[in-house]
Design a protein around this nucleic acid. Structure first.
Lengths: 158, 158
DNA sequence: CGAGGCCATGCAAGGATATTGCGCTTGAAA
DNA sequence: TTTCAAGCGCAATATCCTTGCATGGCCTCG
């Protein structure tokens, strides 16, 4: 099993909490915060990375500043629940750069997508592309007009 | 205006693309990729940070490995669209550590939340807390059973 | 057309950080 | 008690970050 470690102690969790909130912190600073010297701290980070518990590090960018004015979620229902068609739909949207997330929803044949668009016209084009897709029977668009909270990952402050 | 810069050239966008995909890359490596020497590269990164175009850096962790077995989205409808009540709801869920994202949806009185839970019982407790909230009239739970695509931020590979 | 100023770059030096090897302590099991 | 494995800190080296400074392109204005 590449991910998950038998033993994950309080120091590991604190490392994860710190890196989840500031992924570019230097190892020296991280070591100081978890009250360890630098080498064992770095070894723990490497271990968490290799175990797959840390999947990567990402800069969080401002979508609007980069020309992506619209973020919306699309609740997509497929006509069929056949495994091959579900798979085909996922493979399709995986290749759309504007689709940033694609989650299969419990209950069968539904997906929730997070999508970004440059403007309203672009948004319409994207929803049309979804609607006109062969296996899609229904698309509900949930356009974000304000984000009150946006924190990464999971709670770790315990 | 603290965020947005008048001029954002191809090198800046490439820097953002690289850091969005690997936020812990060293500046030397980043400079090599965008074909710059280290000092001007670092100055550009600092400029993007101070302009608010880079909002932060985060480690991406594995929720299941850390005991958060369930990720679900909640589509919450409020009874009223009064500004003070919308505000109150947002302030409320901001304080719930399990609620990681709260987006106000166009159309009035609806929110889309991303929520994590330790198990099914925990999930039920959270949805009940939502449903029983004074101003909430309707909660639709969209439980994720599989994530086909999950990439951060916005498209930048152009 | 040329001089000046602005902006961004590259080079170089120092200080800080990352990374490896090694010896030590600790705690559990034989 | 002895043994062993896991994890720590220290020390040394390699790498990286950061700042100051000089150079060159480019636009503007005289």
């Amino acid at each position: 099993m590449p991910d998950s470690i038998d033993n994950l102690d309080a120091v590991d969790r604190q490392i994860l909490a710190e890196l989840q909130s500031d992924g570019r912190m230097t190892n020296v600073e991280l070591a100081r915060r978890v009250d360890l010297s630098a080498p064992p701290c770095l070894r723990r980070v490497r271990r968490l990375e290799e175990a797959g518990i840390i999947r990567g590090y990402h800069a969080e960018v401002d979508p609007v500043a980069l020309g992506w004015e619209i973020t919306f979620f699309a609740l997509v229902g497929l006509e069929s629940q056949k495994q091959t068609l579900l798979q085909a739909f996922q493979e399709e949207v995986k290749q759309w750069p504007e689709v940033r997330e694609c989650h299969m929803i419990r209950g069968g044949g539904d997906f929730l997508l997070r999508v970004v668009a440059r403007d309203t016209a672009h948004e319409n084009a994207l929803t049309n592309r979804l609607t006109s897709h062969a296996t899609v029977s229904r698309v509900q668009t949930l356009q974000t007009i304000h984000t009150a909270k946006q924190v990464p990952g999971v709670p770790l402050e315990m």
